[in-house]
Design a protein around this nucleic acid. Structure first.
Length: 431
DNA sequence: AAAGCATCCAACCGCTTCTAC
DNA sequence: AGTAGAAGCGGTTGGATGCTT
């Protein structure tokens, strides 16, 4: 563990926090709130940098932290969220009241990863390891082919450089790579585009590509089902809520709601099981509340692809590790924003994102304050949080705002609405 | 009992994003 | 629009602890 440059300058303490330091920080924040973190250590009389104080508060001193081991349900939820969100620990933590991103990250790296591997599931891709191994074998062969080609190419003249990585070679190599490197993403787009340009785009799209599309590269243009825009300088795929995906690409139909839709919601729309409107919860089978701890327990399968049966009921497994399902939608890093080509996607979600701050309130409303043993700090309640608990008007405001969010969503065209409803059911909310 | 190893987790680092000016 | 500082995030590290030999 190194030391911040600022810590060097000021000869600040590092390493573990002493109980005295904890108490100082706690007392200060209790009385004054943290305000500007950089000024906290000075005002609190600590020989620490503000960053360190912030981290200590967030990860340890916050009164709304849940202590103790993770429950099976929490682990299940983490796995499912990881399948969708990847290593976005803070977003995953947001779905687990009282848990910190650091805690979840540590759990993942130390425990869950191992368990998944033992179950034959690759923790990065959430695909069966056998599949990964098979593809990596293929990859080696492909690499050999590439090397041969490179040798041949080197023998050839300048003009051959343009053909140094013919599509067949590079694509098949990349296709086996389940990570979402930019190369892979571009390959799939190219691949898809070339398939489309061969006119029979709907039938030439290979089924083996389903589930591997880098959907954060997509443009969600509201005009067609899922089409390829070959007119623009960069190939873009368009998802259209106004036509069924089967009209455009039947092969993708089954995977549309499983793959595209969840990825649409990755970052901006927070999967928010902590938000529960008492009267709106029409799906008690999806969410149950642990009244003892005041914590909502979310069945892991409520996030799975196949959690819903035709009659709308949900099936669930008590333990993720008892189920055989794997997750193919939502590759680990596929939500990373890519820049300008995401404008439309961003616009689509912006309206919903505007309410993100409102949604955050729910974290306080659903936080199991002081639910577990914190003898030293048990009298402490985060001031803002306490306000949310005791101030009924704030709660009402939040409920009102949340309803506003639901109204916004309900204005989305029908097709979207249906998909959103399906999602909502899958994610434990009704819209 | 002691050394070596493995595991866990608190905390740091560096980078990105946000915000105020 | 540009900039600086603050905040936030994810990856990584190192110390404490537990287990094995």
């Amino acid at each position: 563990m190194g030391r911040h440059s600022c810590c060097y300058k000021q000869k600040l303490r590092k390493g573990l926090w002493s109980p005295e330091e904890d108490e100082k920080l706690l007392n200060y924040i209790t009385k004054h709130g943290h305000g500007c973190w950089s000024s906290v250590p000075k005002l609190a009389g600590l020989q620490r940098c503000g960053k360190s104080c912030r981290l200590r508060w967030i990860n340890y001193l916050r009164p709304d932290l849940k202590r103790g081991a993770f429950s099976q349900q929490e682990e299940n939820l983490i796995i499912e969220l990881h399948a969708v969100l990847g290593n976005r620990w803070s977003q995953i933590a947001a779905q687990l009241p009282g848990r910190t991103d650091n805690e979840i990250k540590n759990l993942w790296n130390s425990s869950i990863k191992k368990k998944l591997r033992q179950r034959g599931i690759d923790p990065n891709t959430h695909k069966p390891l056998s599949e990964i191994e098979t593809t990596s074998d293929q990859e080696k062969q492909q690499q050999l082919t590439i090397n041969k080609n490179n040798i041949n190419n080197e023998r050839n003249s300048e003009e051959s450089k343009e053909k140094q990585y013919p599509l067949e070679v590079s694509s098949s190599s990349m296709m086996t790579n389940t990570s979402t490197s930019p190369q892979t993403q571009e390959f799939f787009l190219d691949r898809f585009a070339s398939a489309a340009s061969n006119e029979s785009s709907t039938t030439s799209c290979r089924p083996d590509l389903v589930g591997y599309f880098p959907f954060h590269k997509l443009n969600y243009e509201p005009n067609i089902g899922l089409s390829v825009n070959l007119n623009s300088s960069s190939v873009s795929l368009c998802f259209n809520p106004n036509s069924t995906s089967s009209e455009m690409i039947p092969e993708l139909n089954s995977s549309m709601t499983q793959t595209i839709i969840p990825s649409m919601f990755q970052t901006p729309i927070r999967v928010k099981p902590t938000v529960s409107l008492p009267s709106d919860n029409n799906n008690p089978s999806v969410c149950s509340t642990d009244h003892v701890n005041g914590v909502q327990n979310w069945e892991a399968s409520s996030f799975s692809n196949n959690c819903s049966t035709s009659n709308g009921s949900t099936t669930s497994n008590n333990s993720f590790f008892d189920s055989n399902m794997t997750f193919s939608w939502g590759l680990p890093d596929c939500g990373k924003s890519g820049g300008d080509d995401h404008d439309q996607e961003a616009q689509l979600i912006r309206g919903l994102e505007n309410d993100q701050e409102d949604i955050k309130w729910s974290e306080y409303l659903n936080t199991p304050f002081l639910s577990t043993s914190q003898p030293m700090y048990s009298e402490m309640i985060k001031p803002e949080a306490a306000h949310f608990i005791t101030d009924g008007s704030s709660t009402t405001n939040w409920l009102h705002q949340n309803q506003h969010l639901h109204q916004q969503i309900s204005q989305v065209p029908d097709m979207y609405s249906k998909d959103l409803q399906r999602l909502a059911v899958a994610f434990g909310q009704t819209l």
